[in-house]
């Protein structure tokens, strides 16, 4: 009997195979490459010919004059993005949920989702024009309010804010859809019961909608905590310039220069490995916390 069941389900299990192979080839095999982080790696000598140098690559990065600043920039930009990237879509999803006309709701949903599909190469060029102090529309509007033009992309006080706001603008539509989906899965009888008990809109939101969304919110927080060291390479690379290295240079752009301008793949891999280890630890801890505090499990 058991064997017959197994035989019957075998084709279904085999369907998993292509996916497994892809994960193996593209996610697990490349992990072997982390050995480069402990080598004085040169392409011509390869993995087996390059000498082992222990932790020297890590020491080299710590000895670079700007590393402290770069790590701080990365943490600051990434954390602000995570916080704003959680808060904004939840609020927008709650607000959209209250919109009764379906065409407005869907229209807004589509419009805010659109920038997600544009690459930072394109948006970089657009933002440079939008934020230009002489011709940009943003400064033109500020000018109408009597505010002097601000050179957003060349001012160390403004540059991180530009990164955070433009990133949230680009991505919040996507998360909003996730939260809206979570809201629709809330059992409508709960609302009916609440109305019977005399709960208004605000009370319904606080005591039914938000708790109903909680599992998804916890999941999104857990996943995003892994990004604490990802401040967004594409974005920074396309918007940064020498004037804002001080506030905008992040680990990824530093790795890029080390790896591709100086061909120091060992050092670049070392920094990449460091980032991965930190992300792994943070995801593990937040997952454990999510289980403990919200009784939430992914598996």
């Amino acid at each position: 009997m058991k064997a017959a069941k197994w035989m019957r389900e075998l084709p279904l299990h085999l369907l998993l195979l292509p996916g497994l192979v892809l994960v193996l080839v593209y996610s697990y095999v490349p992990m072997l490459g982390v050995v480069i982080a402990f080598q004085k790696f040169t392409i011509f000598s390869g993995w087996f010919g390059s000498p082992w140098i222990g932790l020297d690559n890590f020491r080299f990065v710590l000895d670079m004059p700007n590393t402290g600043q770069v790590i701080w920039n990365t943490l600051f930009i990434a954390c602000m993005k995570i916080i704003a990237g959680l808060f904004v879509p939840i609020v927008v999803a709650l607000l959209l949920n209250e919109v009764t006309r379906s065409f407005i709701k869907r229209g807004v949903q589509t419009l805010i989702y659109l920038p997600h599909f544009l690459s930072w190469v394109i948006l970089g060029g657009i933002l440079i024009d939008l934020l230009s102090p002489s011709e940009g529309i943003v400064n033109a509007m500020l000018g109408k309010l009597g505010i002097e033009p601000i050179f957003f992309l060349a001012d160390n006080r403004w540059f991180p804010a530009v990164l955070i706001i433009s990133d949230v603008w680009k991505e919040f539509g996507f998360s909003t859809i996730v939260y809206l989906a979570a809201i629709t899965s809330v059992n409508p009888t709960l609302y009916e019961a609440a109305v019977m008990d005399g709960a208004g809109r605000w009370k319904q939101t606080r005591h039914i909608t938000l708790p109903g969304m909680m599992p998804i919110i916890v999941l999104m927080v857990t996943l995003s905590l892994g990004n604490v060291l990802n401040a967004g390479f594409d974005q920074v690379f396309n918007l940064a310039n020498p004037l804002v290295y001080e506030s905008g240079d992040i680990l990824d752009t530093m790795i890029y220069r080390i790896a591709f301008n100086d061909a120091q793949y060992g050092v670049a891999t070392a920094v990449g490995l460091f980032k991965s280890v930190v992300s792994f630890l943070l995801i593990s801890v937040s997952y454990w916390l999510a289980y403990r505090l919200a009784n939430y499990r992914i598996f």
């Binding site: 080299f60 004059p65 700007n66 240079d249 080390i258 100086d262």
Partner: peptide, 23 residues
Amino acid sequence: MTDKWATLDKLEKETFTKIIMGA
């Protein structure tokens, strides 16, 4: 050069741009 050029080049571009722009 292999070890330090990224740092030195960044320093050069950063300083020169700042000087030209009067920063």
